[in-house]
Design a protein around this nucleic acid. Structure first.
Lengths: 165, 165
DNA sequence: GGGTGATATGTTATCTTATACCGATTCGAA
DNA sequence: TTCGAATCGGTATAAGATAACATATCACCC
């Protein structure tokens, strides 16, 4: 079934939107990807994904852990880190390096390469899509013989909700 | 005096170069900047800068601390963090978010906005200059009312020296 | 030279983030 | 049903960062 009004993930986080739909969409996309790729979306992993999907804020591993614990789940650090590693490794969540924290990916289905707008106040994170091609870094890498494995592009600032009026 | 063959900082880190000259250039540039801007390049700050300048590798705060300690300097964590904060705040060093580590800036004199090529093996870091204009993120920020304060662009991979032959 | 406010240092303690490691369990395919 | 790989539950500890507070130093003005 074709989605009648596809979600545009980019600016979503900073705008009012039907977050239930947003969340459901993400969970379903992750489920589908796991089926397609033979990955095991175990109970812990699913719970962590749902915790991250509660809103578009970045959560530290220990925040995730606390929420697991509240829900009666065993809660030692490796539990959270293992689930987060799984989600990040498979593109279902992203690590925000500037915050040492994690966000669910709003569009886990396409193979995009994300850049992030990170609110330093409320930790809400929006994704912007990086156009294909490696830009400045790719050029420099070719010139110097450097092999790029992963790129992170992160902008920190204030979201419209937190900006001084 | 005009520099007869100005250093091109970008690809330097991955290539053989006269590192003594490179280091001296940086220290002098920092000294000049401090004089010009009324900043105090205190003993600790200078030592930390010199530690970072030993090569183009990123060092963790505790690595820096250990080297201060080796040199007989008092070595509690805040000592290193304060000096590093000073250097970073004034553009004399950069924090590499992906490594939670720090590198000296090879060109502390111009007001460039850097992007980094980071070798995951030897932690050597090269800078590439980001062209002015905010690119994808700037566009997205304008669209959504986000105010950008700082951007970090980091590519992790293998430098020519560490790439499998 | 002496006072004063701002800046920097020395130090303790603690907090946050992340991983190494080991044994038990579960899953999926042969 | 047995094997190997992946996952989990748990302990312990490493690595990164900051809060707080007393002391010292600097830059400036009188």
């Amino acid at each position: 079934m074709a989605d009648p009004s596809p979600i545009d993930p980019a600016p979503l986080a900073f705008q009012k939107h039907d977050h239930n739909r947003c969340r459901t969409h993400s969970v379903e996309a992750v489920e589908a990807a796991c089926r397609a790729r033979g990955l095991r979306l175990t109970d812990t992993r699913r719970r962590v994904l749902e915790i991250l999907l509660q809103d578009h804020r970045a959560l530290g591993a220990y925040d995730v852990l606390a929420r697991l614990s509240d829900a009666g789940h065993p809660a030692h650090p490796p539990v959270a880190y293992r689930a987060l590693d799984f989600l990040v490794a498979n593109g279902f969540a992203h690590k925000i390096e500037r915050l040492n924290a994690f966000v669910a990916c709003p569009a886990p289905d396409d193979g995009h390469r994300p850049a992030f707008l990170i609110c330093r106040d409320c930790r809400t994170v929006a994704e912007a899509a990086v156009p294909p091609g490696d830009g400045v870094l790719g050029e420099e890498a070719r010139r110097t013989g450097f092999t790029i494995h992963a790129v992170s592009i992160e902008a920190e600032g204030l979201c419209p909700g937190c900006a001084p009026s």
